[in-house]
Design a protein around this nucleic acid. Sequence first.
RNA 1: GCGCCUGUAGCUCAGUAGGACAGAGCAGUGGCCUUCUAAGCCAUUGGUCACAGGUUCGAAUCCUGUCAGGCGUGCCA
Length: 599
Amino acid sequence: MWDNVAYVRLSDMNYCMAQIKKEFVKIANEISVENGLEIIFSDSDIMLSPPKIKEHGDLSTNFAMMNSKKFGMPPVKLAAEIVKRLGSHTDIFSAVTTAGPGFINFTLSDSQIYQGLGRILDAQTAWGRGTTKPGRINLEYVSANPTGPMHVGHGRGAAVGDSIARIMRFAGYDVTCEYYLNDAGKQVENLAESIKARYLELVKSEVGNVQTIEFPEDGYHGAYVIDMAKSFRDIHGNKPALEGIDMETLKSFAVAEALKGIKKTLADLDITFEVFYSEKALHESGALKKAQDILAQRGHIYEQDGAVFFRSSNFGDEKDRVLVKSDGAATYFAADIAYHLDKFNRGYTHLIDLWGADHHGYIPRMKASIEAFGHERDDLEVLLVQFVSLVKGDEKLAMGKRSGNFVTLDDLIAETGADVTRWYFVAKSHDVAIDFDLSEALSQDPRENPARYAQYGHARACSILKKGSSLFGDNLPVVNETVFTHLSCPEEIEISKVLMQFPQVVSDAAESRSPHKIANFLTEISRMFNSYYTRYKDDPVLPKPTQQVENWEETWDLHKTAARLAWIECFKTVTGNALNLLGLNAPEYMVSPEEAGNE
RNA sequence: GCGCCUGUAGCUCAGUAGGACAGAGCAGUGGCCUUCUAAGCCAUUGGUCACAGGUUCGAAUCCUGUCAGGCGUGCCA
């Protein structure tokens, strides 16, 4: 549809900002010299950002206020002087004014908007993509113990982690997603013991006269354990004394079974990991010993009371931590140290861990170990994912795997759908505890559901494009940069400017590891589009059936329609890309309740 | 006790490298379907940004203190 040849210059918000800064710096330095100042300004001294209120233009700087003292003149006067020299307009901006206490506001020229739209059509799914960044990032998240179904809290970590990965990759980072599989610890043992108990009960009910064991105190009471026991029996048959089956076999089975369920749930959320890293394999590889040796060489280890301590207090931790207990067993921390060291050894330059907020006390010792190995503290970045409370009316639904009484992530997905589930997890900052309101997410009326709203904008755009294509086919004028001059509504220009900001939104979301910024962006732009759509009901993009009277094709403004369709294509591209970054489907069509009701 | 996170509209939350009258969704109220999908739109109600000081031309945002909630403070994992 788009004629690529029409482009010479690439224009987006970054380009406009760079051009304005260049000119701005020149003038600021001019004035500086004339006033006998020795200050030389550079691009980084100019803060340009989109103002909150559209009356203040498209880009705004507080430069005059920040530097009025240096120039020895009031902000307003300095701003006026700069504006005078900037000239009333260039091909980048169509207006520049002073306002308030000394702001300088720029309004972008329409030609920049048209070029920006062209840029979006060119880039399509690549619109918003950042340039390749150096380094390799290892992103570890979920890492739920393989002891049963994932709960809602894991779900939040999974959705946030996956979205961060998508966003960071899109922003140009090399990201590997990794799941640390705790298949070596006591929890797995507890699960195996639990399965054993259930299995023997099962065998007894079938064969009778079988010696059962007491259900382990720290066992898992969930019904899923009984299912696992049944599967185990299906494989091994009824063996009253478990002859020929050792605990290792049972444990491997337990882990495999639990992991199967976890992977299924993750797949339902469209989440995949490149690496599942086994803690058991880590132990068997001798990595713990190696890591400990390195620490010993560097003098960060000592023995006391029969235990081996890591001198983490030398690196900002509040006290030293045990690596090897007096009974000779390694601590979880010792394994974790070796694990993180191994990540560096595998060539990653920056580690990001997503942990549940209850683990925050663990951060100082982990960073201490990173430092002890000679890496920078900040080479390990820990993001804490706060708790999720499920709320249904006044009822707070409790979670806890061992009690067996919890809402699983599977339940939640089954009730609300994967898209809605993901939306609620990523629409808020990972740093705040959230109440997941089921009454809203489950609402029978989708109008109350913000996740659906975000998708609807995309579906609506697709619908118009499809209809336009069937109505006009190839009869529309060729779309190139000049066609956009036929955009006539202020809303179209407003929305275009927001579409042009998408790359900045992506890079901001990536830098701050904040998927919710993408969600907010989606909500805003969908609202703008729906508002436009309804407002111009009397001046529609496509002729209504009632307008398609005799010879209508001859009077219909084909240029305007071509421009609008291309512009809607831009909207569809941006919302589609944004939805994808959040791991949500970008539907081309959504069945309305009315339609569904008619079927 | 000490440490980390949080306190913004009735509810759930944005907004914090200081910036221009504090935002959104949901809930409430009043309107809009001979439809490019009304899963929508328009209007409207609603806030001493927990409280008290301080820094600044300017503070929800930075500093100090107080109060409230959550979490942590294992030779558990």
